[in-house]
């Protein structure tokens, strides 16, 4: 039984006809007959391209395989070896930081920018510009990062100009992951700012007028008008962020190593772990472990799906 009323749901929910009578009308019967022709072409392509290879991956994770040639049955060995590997645990922690840490920062910045730009002159221009970084390939950002944070890079030069001479060694291994997280935050927050601003545009101005009359401050307006009406957007975005962030990979690779090499293990995440098992430049590919790690990522995605279903459930006819 889907709960009929969900806090923050839009008025469309109220308009939707409910009750058994409507479900069996000729209108609905005709539509249900069309369900297969509408859904199954997409499902067929999706099964073929995405699901079938994934099932193969499940099988692969129980084997030892160099990518071609004979396969060797390994049972659960790939999984047990992986769980005992300290680097896998590092990868887990780093994956967590990317999904949760960067996610929180991205959403905070996107909210902040949304509030700031809400009634600022030139907001259209600003909105277009904050989206730019997501168009730029990682390799450009990576090279620029070097020129910014190298010991004699722009950041340190500017800091010296204002008299700051003690600064962290930005690109030292201990700090590298943090600096990468900052880069990720910057690159991703633009997209979400654009989305949030678009959502705010749909909020009827009368609500703000009312808030105005009540004498609400900017923060209060956000807290009591903007945020409740953005809740849906935020929950959809957070699902998308999580599944995307779990797979973060190219960004880590181009940021940290020269082409063809692997970055130091202290910045690996799950996707990098999987990649390293398959593409270590000095080693033989081990697709079994790469696949096992892929399966873990998929399971985590499945967990996040629970969240996704909570978002979607309201209108699907689940019961």
């Amino acid at each position: 039984m889907a709960s009929a009323i969900v806090v923050g749901s839009t008025t469309e929910d109220g308009r939707r006809p409910v009750g058994p009578g409507r479900r069996h009308s000729p209108f609905h019967r005709a539509r249900r007959r069309m369900f297969v022709p509408f859904v199954y072409p997409a499902l067929a392509v999706y099964m073929l391209i995405m699901v079938a290879p994934t099932l193969f991956t499940l099988w692969l994770s129980l084997n030892r395989w160099a990518g071609a040639g004979p396969m060797q049955w390994a049972g659960l060995h790939n999984y047990t070896a992986m769980f005992r590997d300290p680097v896998f645990r590092t990868s887990f922690v780093n994956t967590f930081w990317i999904v949760v840490g960067v996610g929180a920062a991205v959403f905070a910045i996107a909210f902040g920018m949304t509030i700031l730009l809400q009634d600022m002159a030139g907001r259209r221009f600003a909105r277009a510009v904050v989206f730019f970084p997501s168009l730029v390939p990682g390799i450009a950002i990576s090279i620029m990062w070097g020129y910014l944070f190298n010991p004699d890079g722009l950041v340190n030069t500017l800091l010296a100009d204002v008299g700051v001479h003690s600064h962290p060694e930005w690109l030292a291994q201990d700090n590298m992951f943090k600096v990468i997280l900052i880069g990720m935050t910057w690159l991703s927050s633009g997209v979400y700012t654009v989305i949030f601003m678009a959502a705010v545009d749909r909020i009827p101005p009368e609500l703000y007028q009312a808030a105005e009359i009540e004498g609400a401050s900017a923060f209060q307006r956000f807290r009591y008008v903007t945020f409740p009406l953005m809740k849906d957007v935020v929950s959809v975005c957070s699902v998308l962020w999580c599944v995307g962030a779990l797979k973060t990979f190219e960004f880590l690779l181009v940021f940290s190593a020269e082409s063809g090499a692997l970055p130091p293990t202290n910045i690996w995440n799950f996707a990098m772990y999987s990649y390293a098992e398959a593409f270590n430049p000095d080693g033989t590919a081990d697709y079994g472990i790469a696949a096992a790690c892929g399966v873990i990522v998929l399971l985590l995605t499945g967990l996040l799906m629970v969240l996704a279903r909570r978002v979607l459930r309201r209108d699907a006819d689940t019961y």
Partner: peptide, 19 residues
């Protein structure tokens, strides 16, 4: 040569400590 079977060891143990 460093055998291919040690690549994983090198990536996870040796290179990190050597750095």
């Amino acid at each position: 040569r460093s055998p291919a079977s040690l690549a994983d060891y090198n990536a996870k143990i040796y290179f990190g400590l050597d750095d």
